[in-house]
Write a protein that binds this DNA or RNA. Structure first.
Ligand SMILES: [Mn+2]
Ligand SMILES: [Mn+2]
Ligand SMILES: [Zn+2]
Ligand SMILES: [Zn+2]
Lengths: 143, 143
DNA sequence: TATTTAATGAGATTGATTCTCAATATCAAT
DNA sequence: ATTGATATTGAGAATCAATCTCATTAAATA
């Protein structure tokens, strides 16, 4: 399914489905979650697949363009991406201790945001909400 | 008032109130809003005040530590900071066209977040909510 | 003022990302 | 399958924010 989307996207833009792109795509898909370009690059390398960093970056841009993945935010370790195809929109809680990311969704928050936009004459396109703190596990560790 | 906080902070840490720090502090204060290190550095330079980039970065770290400013997020143009002393917590709408930043606050959203954290056994420390889209002005331009 | 120690600036370094460009792979027409 | 047109690749250079190094300078205070 994702492949179909990618194929159409590439064809429409006159781009080719090459081995490098295929490899990055597979690996991206295998994450089904959050990742950064460097870790993806290294995992490809480990597997013995030779794809240059440049191609990794270039392919991730394409995957963003066609809506299969999304930039989440910039971090100290580089841009965090997320595979979003088939995932509903959601927001994140981010554990400052272990890095765990908990996904959540609140209809109420979404609705209130829309109301606020209307009030302020702002045309909202998308948003990100990140709550930073400590996950259950890390709270226990501290005790 | 801010000066008093800064002074106490420096004294407690055995740090000195130097010209470079004073200059960065003044300039930071003058923003009363969002800025990045490079723009601050350039504005200092324009004014004929000689402070190195290194000192700008070092001083901004201190101002963060003592709670007068806060990192908002990393952008293509570097880390975005915000002067927060005396500002209540708020979130942002960010115009993708002109860059304008609209600040807003919703008690309801804050409350729901707390509820969600409780549900998910997450200890929330802080959060950021950014709504991206188009401001009133930029919506008009398009028509 | 002299002494001690923190702070500074210039420039090197790091790390993520992008760019360059010659070599290569892909595709479609033959 | 061969050819030709063109998109893609990888290696390494370039860029840019941020940090680090370290010799020199400035603050604090006795
Ligand atoms: Mn997610
Ligand atoms: Mn703000
Ligand atoms: Zn944790
Ligand atoms: Zn605007």
């Amino acid at each position: 399914m994702e492949k179909r989307i990618l194929n159409k996207f590439l064809k429409d833009k006159g781009l080719r489905l090459t081995k490098a792109r295929e490899a990055v795509f597979q690996r991206t898909f295998s994450y089904q979650g959050h990742f950064n370009p460097e870790s993806l690059y290294l995992r490809l390398k480990e597997t013995g697949i030779k794809v240059s960093r440049a191609s990794v970056y270039r392919t991730l841009s394409l995957l963003c363009e066609c809506g299969l993945i999304e930039k989440v935010r910039k971090t100290e370790e580089g841009t965090l991406y997320e595979y979003i195809f088939g995932h509903e929109h959601h927001d994140h809680m981010h554990c400052l201790s272990c890095g765990e990311i908990i996904e959540f969704y609140s209809e109420d928050i979404e609705r209130i945001q829309e109301e606020l936009c209307k009030e302020l004459h702002f045309k909202g396109i998308n948003h990100s909400l990140e709550i930073r703190g400590y996950c259950k596990k890390c709270q226990k560790k501290k005790n």
